[in-house]
Simulated scan of single mutants.
Amino acid sequence: MSFEKFICWNLDRVQRVMNEEATQPSNHLFLATHHPITMYRQELIEASSRIEYDEQKFLKDFLAEKEFTFVPVLGDSGTGKSHLIRWIYANIKSTDKRKVLLIPKIGTNLKDIVGLVLEGIEGEKFDEYRKRVSLATTTLTKTQARVQLLNQLAAAIGDDEERDKSKLTDEQNYLVDELNSLLYDQFFR
Rank of each mutant, 00 (worst) to 15 (best):
K105I: 12
S77L: 03
N91F: 03
L59H: 03
S49W: 04
N109S: 13
H83S: 09
G78Q: 01
L63W: 02
K81H: 09
R98F: 01
P25L: 07
P104M: 00
P72A: 12
T23W: 09
K93P: 12
D96G: 10
T69P: 00
W87V: 02
S82D: 02
K60C: 12
S48E: 14
S49R: 05
D76L: 13
R41Y: 14
T33A: 07
N91Q: 03
P25Q: 11
F58L: 15
P25T: 09
I51S: 15
G75V: 11
F70E: 02
F30M: 10
F58Y: 10
V100G: 08
D54V: 03
E67Y: 13
N109L: 07
K111Y: 12
Q56M: 14
A22E: 00
K99L: 06
S94A: 11
K111L: 10
K97M: 08
E67R: 13
P72V: 10
I103Y: 02
D61A: 14
E43G: 09
R50F: 00
N109C: 14
F70H: 08
T23H: 13
F68K: 07
K105P: 07
S82T: 09
N109V: 14
Y40W: 11
E52I: 11
Q24G: 02
Q56W: 15
V73I: 15
A22I: 01
P36Q: 10
F30D: 09
D54F: 11
A47Q: 13
I106H: 11
M39Q: 05
Y89P: 03
A90N: 14
L63P: 01
K66H: 10
K99V: 07
E43N: 12
V100P: 02
T79Q: 06
I37P: 00
I92F: 13
P25W: 07
H34N: 06
P104D: 02
F62C: 03
G107D: 11
I85N: 00
R86P: 00
Y89W: 13
L31A: 00
S49G: 06
